[in-house]
Amino acid sequence: MNAFKDAGHLFRFAGLFVLAFVVFLLIRGYVVPKSFGQYGHYRGAAIAEIGARPVKYAGHEACETCHTDQANAKSKGKHAHVNCEACHGALAKHADDPAAVTPVKPDSAVLCARCHTATAAKPKGFPQVNPADHSNGVPCATCHQPHNPAIADAGGAK
C-alpha cells in the first residue's frame, strides 16, 4: 500500500497521458472527414470532387452532332483521325451554347506548319514539307482543303 502511495506522482503523470489521449480521440472523431476510408486510406469524396471539374475540350462527338458537313468531309480524307479540337482548340463552351463563343478560324500558316514542318526527328512516313520552299508563301488553304487536304488532281498531297 505504501509503495502505491510513494508512486502516486507517477500515476499523475500517467493520468496526464490518458487525458491527452482521450482529448486526442475526441478531436480526431470530430476532425477526420466523414468520407475518409470509404474506398481506402483517403477522403472518398475527393474522387467525386475531382470528377466534377469542368470540361474544356468538348470531344469530337459533340462537334459532330451539329457540324455534320465538316465531319463528313473529314471522314473521307487523311485527317479523318484528327479530332476537331486538335486544330480548333478547346470549345466546350461553344458546344454548350454555340452563340456564346464563336470559334476563330485557325491561321493555316501556323497550324499546318506545326505538324507538317519537315524535320529529321519526325517519323519518316509522316507527310512533311519545308513550308518556305513548298509554297513560296502561298497560304496552305489555297491548295489544300484542311478537312480533306489531298489535292484531287495530284491524287494526294505528299
Binding site: 509503495a3 502511495k5 510513494d6 502516486g8 506522482h9 499523475r12
Partner: peptide
Amino acid sequence: MSLGSDNISPRALHIDEKV
C-alpha cells in the same frame, strides 16, 4: 511541474530511480 505532488521521501525517489 511537480504535478501537485511533493512526495520526495527516500522511497519515492528510489522508485523514480528505478523507473
